[in-house]
Simulated assay, not measured.
Amino acid sequence: MAESKNIDGRAATVLLCVIAFAAANANLAFASACNFEAQGEGRVAAVIDARSFRMEDGREVHLAGIETADAAGKADGTPALSALVAGRGVVLRGETDAPDRYGRQPAFVFADAGGASVQGLLLAQGEALVSGTVADMACAAELAAAETAARRAKRGVWADTEVIKNAESPGDILTRIGRFTVVEGKVLSVRQAGATSYINFGRRWTQDFAVTISRRVMPTFEAVGISLKALENKRIRVRGWVESRGGPRIDARTPGQIELAGEN
């Protein structure tokens, strides 16, 4: 009986988030911008973790375009994904069905024909974060809108006021080494050293937080009109995996990892 109540509660939460997401993004409820070419379909046999599941035919599917949302005291997001796809038939969509290095099929997942993607629903619940790696601008904007709606409503992980780390607190960011993190702050300077550009948020370059961008990926930033020097004195939000190279670093490989934040 208790388990039944828990399931009913999760279902109700999912339904409310679906309604809220549809209301805020009415057009997306009928035609998702992430509705890429079909790459297969089938029934979900088991949910592996907050971002992946196994199909009845043995394929492992990894949700593209999002990362796990985690915060202090917040439970694993696996139940949220289970509530959406466990035991259900799903359609997989994407630009390619090529497996990733772990043998999983990255895909946008749809449990309802013509409805929002599972990714969009998880973002709307505050159970995931936008990865910033989706190249298709319409799809990326759709995912960002879902995340923004959850953040403004303080749903899910966004109930924690410290989800977005302060760029002026490098020690706090260093606690996130090896984890996907969103950092916000004002850019102090942009410098280039060898084949790497540095977006600096402090004067102590060996200790303060910085974003690194390799010369080989710069054309992708330039193609969408991002000038790194123009970011100086702007407040930006950056997302990615935290590394420690003297101070905390996030390596930006795609334009979607960087966005203007607040008033500029």
Results as ranks from 00 to 15, higher is better:
Val118Thr: 11
Val224Asn: 13
Gly87Ser: 04
Ile7Tyr: 06
Leu15Tyr: 12
Ile236His: 10
Phe180Cys: 06
Gln39Ala: 14
Leu129Val: 01
Val238His: 05
Phe21Tyr: 11
Arg235Ser: 13
Pro106Ile: 06
Leu81Val: 00
Ser131Phe: 02
Ala72Thr: 07
Arg10Glu: 12
Tyr102His: 14
Gly114Glu: 09
Pro219Asn: 11
Gly132Asp: 15
Met218Val: 08
Val118Ser: 08
Ala69Arg: 03
Asp208Met: 03
Pro170His: 01
Val182Phe: 10
Ser117Leu: 03
Ser244Met: 09
Glu3Phe: 07
Gly58Leu: 08
Ser244Thr: 03
Ala20His: 11
Arg216Tyr: 11
Ala50Cys: 09
Leu92Gln: 03
Gln125Ile: 03
Val190Thr: 13
Glu142Cys: 05
Asp57Asn: 14
Leu228Cys: 13
Ala135Ile: 13
Gly240Phe: 07
Ser227Ile: 01
Ala69Phe: 04
Ala71Val: 03
Ile213Asn: 12
Arg51Ile: 05
Ser82Gln: 15
Val224Ala: 13
Arg176Asp: 11
Phe209Tyr: 11
Ala80Lys: 04
Glu37Ser: 11
Ser227Pro: 00
Lys154Thr: 10
Tyr198Gly: 02
Gly42Asn: 09
Ala195Ser: 15
Pro106Asp: 05
Leu81Ala: 04
Gly87Trp: 00
Ala116Asp: 10
Gly246Met: 06
Trp241Thr: 14
Ala2Cys: 02
Trp205Cys: 00
Val183Trp: 01
Arg249His: 10
